[in-house]
């Protein structure tokens, strides 16, 4: 029982913190993100397992985490509102070549990030070559060239 409760609590806590931290750079991990990811993974592992390193505990925890994940996928399928809450929604950062400064500021994405995505995806050289830039749910910026 303890393993299941630990699994559910840690999963939900991480989900809430990651979602509220607004980290949308998971698709492009910087050195700082990598360090953060390592530390969080190690801390989470200890919180999940406690002092119990048995196979039974590991199996129960793994099943718990996968079951929650499956349950959430069904919830998201049933309710678009829940999907928006859990996964977020895409944000248009540049529309018809015009940057949306409010969206960029609040999503903490700057023009350098957009230009980097433009270079990687389409080999674009200048900002005016971008028609749309969208911050996707997964954290990556997708570019539609003019």
């Amino acid at each position: 029982m303890d393993s299941v409760i630990r699994g559910v609590v840690v999963y939900l806590f991480l989900l809430v913190v990651v979602r509220l931290s607004g980290r949308r750079t998971l698709a492009q991990i910087t050195a700082f993100d990598f360090v953060l990811l390592l530390i969080v993974a190690e801390t989470t592992q200890q919180a999940l397992l406690g002092d119990d390193f048995s196979l039974s505990n590991a199996f129960v925890l793994i099943l718990t985490l996968f079951t929650i994940d499956i349950a959430f996928s069904y919830i998201k399928g049933w309710s678009p509102r829940a999907a928006a809450m859990l996964d977020g929604t895409p944000t248009v950062l540049i529309s018809l070549g015009k940057p949306d400064e409010v969206a960029m500021r609040r999503a903490r994405v700057d023009l350098d990030d957009i230009m980097e995505a433009a270079r990687q995806q389409h080999g674009l050289e200048r900002l005016e070559q971008i028609k749309f830039a969208i911050l996707e749910v997964g954290g990556n910026v997708s570019i539609v060239p003019k």
Binding site: A84, T89, P90, T91, V92, S95, L96, A103, R106, F132, I134, V144
Partner: peptide, 12 residues
């Protein structure tokens, strides 16, 4: 602007 996307700006 022609983009087909469920942005939900108010929710954002």
């Amino acid at each position: 602007d022609g983009l087909q996307i469920d942005e939900r700006r108010h929710f954002q």
